[in-house]
Amino acid sequence: MNEFVIPILIFVALALFAGLLLSLASKLFAVKVDTRITDAREALPGANCGACGYAGCDEYAAAVIQDEVSVSLCVPGGAQVAEKLGEITGRKAEAVIPPVARVLCGGDCESAKKAYQYHGFQSCAAAAGLYGGDKSCHYGCLGFGDCVKACPQNAISVENGVAVVDPNRCIGCLICVSVCPKGVIAPVERTASYLVLCKNPQRGKETRAVCSAGCIGCKKCERTCPAGAVKVTDGLAAIDPTLCTGCGSCAEGCPVHCIVKL
């Protein structure tokens, strides 16, 4: 009989000792941790894309809780992350519709002339360092894919010498805008239906000399647009998406076809 009781007693003693020690210790030495930060961090997608302006999700989570920063800065997360953050911090989430990045250049291999044969390594920044790039037009996309490498969502691809953004993959983090050495990528509202694919402000004669698809500032689109949405400022046409009804008359009218339906 005692052969059964004694081991049990030993284990009871051991368990008592362990239980007491542990519970006392965890109570006496407990440390206050703000659990809300960890919850906020859970809600964020964790892509560390920096679109919210903070160096990654951890910092943004801490900022949302401690510095009362707006809850809807997380562009990839979109509305539903904003809601979750709203619940955690009790602040209302404003609706956020992320813009789309667009490459404002249509000068592909056929239309754009080359100033020289580029023999350096495949990088826009590298080519831009040599006389502004191998394209005669100084405002066009060089097509060496710096934006393609930088895009976290692989939404950009270079087709026939010009970078093109795939709108449904683009989450609007706009990293490509800062990476492009020629500044030819710009945020455009997702709702926009027509877009002018050119950034060359030079007068018609000079533009036509360097690229057959460049906007020559002939103001034809400005005249034909029924809604008055198109304005040509110093040689370059621009469409205001809020006024644009999407009728497409500017696109047909354009002699160089540099206005494109999205």
Binding site: L21, L22, A25, S26, F29, V31
Partner: peptide, 8 residues
């Protein structure tokens, strides 16, 4: 667990 609590 004891060591962790004390250290923390």
């Amino acid at each position: 667990q004891l060591v962790e609590i004390i250290l923390r």
